[in-house]
Structure formats: C-alpha cells, structure tokens
Design a protein around this nucleic acid. Structure first.
Length: 102
DNA sequence: AAAATGACGGTGT
DNA sequence: TACACCGCCATTT
C-alpha cells in the first residue's frame, strides 16, 4: 500500500467525533495538499470502512459530497449532526466544526 | 506502460 | 451567486 494512502487513513482516524476535515486539509496533512481528488478516491475505496470515519470528510466549503454509504449524503449529514457537528443549511459549519490539529 | 477516472479545489465567466 | 473549465494527485483498467 502507498504510504500516502496509509497516512490519509491514519490522520482521518485521528479526527475526533463531532469534528470534520476538508479533503484539502486531509490531503495536506498526508503530505500532498493538492491530492484532494485522490482522497475522495480512497474514501470511495474505503477498505477500512468501520474504522475510517470517511463521513467526517467534507468539501472545502463544508458541503457534503460523495459518501457511498447506505443513505448517501443525507445519511452522512444526519450522522454528523448526531455527532454534534453544527450545520449551516446543507453544509457543515466549518467555523465551529472543522477539526484543527493546532 | 499509457490512458481514463474520480466522494476536489480554485479561477474565470 | 451559479455554472463551466482547468489543474492536481493517486488508483485502476
């Protein structure tokens, strides 16, 4: 497996409940700030579904995209709400729920 | 090995 | 503000 991919999952697993990260941010932490596209690809593949909270990954504007889960994006939004993530209409309130290492 | 694909992001119109 | 296009990266066929 590529180190990049492993790194992405590692970081993603570090994201606490009730917080979210953007694809770009996640990519940056993994070592490639512009690999946001690849990140989504990993989420789709998602070999570690149960241990990888891919539902905590949102777009740069906090908009929910993707999610191959059971209920799709709507279910993802619901799940995040349950975890305590604040929402702004159909998007996540990044000002309050975006995860920050620092 | 080369080309196509995709759960993105930013910029332009 | 909304839609379209281009650029980036890693995976898959």
């Amino acid at each position: 497996m590529s180190d990049f991919k492993d790194k992405v999952y590692k970081v993603l697993r570090t994201v606490p409940k009730g917080k979210v990260v953007t694809y770009g941010q996640l990519a940056a932490m993994a070592g490639s700030p512009k690999a946001s596209r690849a990140i989504g690809l990993f989420m789709k593949t998602n070999p570690d579904a149960p241990r990888t909270p891919c539902h905590r990954v949102v777009g740069s504007d906090g908009k929910l995209i993707g999610y191959s889960g059971k209920n799709g994006v709507p279910g993802k939004m619901q799940m995040l709400k349950e975890e305590g993530v604040k929402f702004k209409g159909d998007k996540v309130d990044l000002e309050k729920s975006q995860w920050r290492q620092n």
